[in-house]
Amino acid sequence: MYITGLPDILLEPIIRDALREDLGRAGDVTAAAVIAPKARFQAEFRSRAAGVSAGIDCARLALSLMDPQIRFEIVKPDASPVVAGDVIARVEGNARAILAAERVALNLLSHLSGVATLTKTYVDAIDGLPAKIACTRKTLPLLRALQKHAVRCGGGFNHRYGLDDAILIKDNHIAICGGVTKALEKAKAAASHTMKIELEVDSLDQLRAALPYGPDVLLLDNFSLKELEEAVKLAKGKAVLEASGGVNLETVRAIAETGVDVISVGALTHSATVFDIGLDAA
């Protein structure tokens, strides 16, 4: 999978707000008190564990916003495998600027590398099977684009980015509409020729009712393994089949073996452990 970084114009508002939060009303009073204004500093972002890197552009931008003259050398681009001791990036520049940006840079780099590393663990767990691992919209507010990028760095795939890029009919939509068929009829009437329709079903009966209406994707919510196998027999080739609910590292391979096309995992973004990275003097 070819991974391209997110453009700075998308990242910059997030990084600026994060720096503004940390700098507060007076800036870095510690650095101002103990470090000479023109002091220089050379440092390295180093991995302290094995995993997958993600978020290096966030670190670069945090530093460059504090000092545009800072030199930032990327050694391990996003999606690179790393082990403990690996240098991810090298930085050299004004010491006060580097220390002011250090925590924002590390927070984002460590969090996003954690998302990428967890995603890679899930991808490896179903190695050899055709199913894809996908994230969900269960992301941290305002960090969705970054977290979804990190999922791709780990070898996963992205579900929809928001409420506007695909129709996803869930249980509450069905309840309000008065049933699966009514919800699908309305969605078909409203959708443009480029808009896909996904329907969440929680039973085989709902799946059977939906198939004649030709949804593009069927989300099989909390199906047992036996039910997933039956759903694949009924609908394979008629719609993309996405399994969701009850997915963890102990269950994901058995779910993939049923023949579903996609397995969505909210934990990739809402439960990833921070990846241990430090900024050490070179």
Score class of each variant (00 low, 15 high):
residue 224 S to P: 13
residue 11 L to R: 03
residue 34 V to Y: 12
residue 78 D to R: 01
residue 64 S to K: 14
residue 216 D to S: 12
residue 271 S to D: 02
residue 96 R to F: 04
residue 204 L to E: 06
residue 261 D to C: 15
residue 238 K to E: 15
residue 239 A to D: 13
residue 57 D to F: 04
residue 36 A to N: 04
residue 137 R to F: 03
residue 155 G to I: 02
residue 233 K to A: 14
residue 27 G to F: 01
residue 253 R to I: 14
residue 4 T to H: 13
residue 162 G to S: 08
residue 20 R to Y: 05
residue 47 S to P: 15
residue 183 A to H: 02
residue 169 I to T: 00
residue 139 T to Y: 00
residue 89 A to P: 02
residue 173 H to V: 04
residue 276 D to W: 02
residue 53 S to P: 05
residue 205 D to N: 09
residue 39 A to D: 13
residue 263 I to V: 12
residue 50 A to V: 14
residue 233 K to I: 14
residue 229 E to P: 11
residue 63 L to T: 09
residue 133 I to N: 05
residue 152 R to C: 10
residue 78 D to F: 01
residue 163 L to Y: 03
residue 117 T to H: 04
residue 177 C to D: 06
residue 43 A to R: 06
residue 267 A to C: 07
residue 109 L to Q: 01
residue 137 R to P: 02
residue 173 H to E: 06
residue 8 D to P: 06
residue 40 R to L: 13
residue 99 L to Q: 00
residue 69 Q to P: 08
residue 235 A to D: 15
residue 82 V to I: 11
residue 212 P to A: 12
residue 102 E to Q: 07
residue 246 G to I: 04
residue 108 L to V: 10
residue 12 E to K: 14
residue 24 G to R: 07
residue 155 G to T: 00
residue 174 I to Y: 02
residue 147 Q to T: 00
residue 95 A to N: 00
residue 110 S to C: 12
residue 123 V to Y: 07
residue 214 G to F: 05
residue 220 L to D: 12
residue 11 L to P: 01
residue 198 E to W: 08
residue 156 G to V: 06
residue 55 G to M: 04
residue 166 A to D: 09
residue 190 A to R: 10
residue 212 P to S: 12
residue 196 K to Q: 11
residue 212 P to N: 11
residue 37 P to M: 06
residue 57 D to C: 03
residue 25 R to V: 13
residue 160 R to T: 04
residue 245 G to D: 13
residue 237 G to S: 15
residue 40 R to F: 07
residue 28 D to T: 07
residue 212 P to D: 11
residue 205 D to I: 11
residue 73 E to F: 11
residue 266 G to K: 05
residue 231 A to L: 13
residue 192 S to C: 08
residue 65 L to Y: 05
residue 190 A to W: 03
residue 138 K to I: 04
residue 253 R to L: 13
residue 218 L to E: 12
residue 254 A to V: 08
residue 124 D to Y: 02
residue 151 V to L: 00
residue 246 G to W: 09
residue 4 T to L: 13
residue 33 A to N: 09
residue 54 A to S: 11
residue 174 I to S: 08
residue 23 L to V: 04
residue 123 V to E: 02
residue 154 G to F: 03
residue 30 T to K: 06
residue 180 V to Y: 01
residue 72 F to I: 01
residue 281 A to G: 12
residue 49 A to K: 14
residue 235 A to S: 15
residue 138 K to C: 05
residue 130 P to F: 00
residue 210 A to K: 03
residue 268 L to W: 09
residue 163 L to G: 01
residue 109 L to R: 03
residue 10 L to P: 10
residue 196 K to V: 07
residue 167 I to G: 05
residue 151 V to R: 08
residue 275 F to D: 00
residue 129 L to N: 03
residue 256 A to G: 13
residue 95 A to G: 11
residue 85 G to S: 06
residue 82 V to F: 10
residue 162 G to M: 00
residue 123 V to K: 05
residue 171 D to K: 09
residue 27 G to L: 04
residue 53 S to M: 14
residue 132 K to H: 11
residue 126 I to E: 03
residue 127 D to E: 08
residue 26 A to G: 15
residue 181 T to F: 06
residue 238 K to P: 12
residue 18 A to L: 10
residue 255 I to A: 12
residue 31 A to I: 12
residue 16 R to N: 10
residue 177 C to E: 03
residue 103 R to W: 05
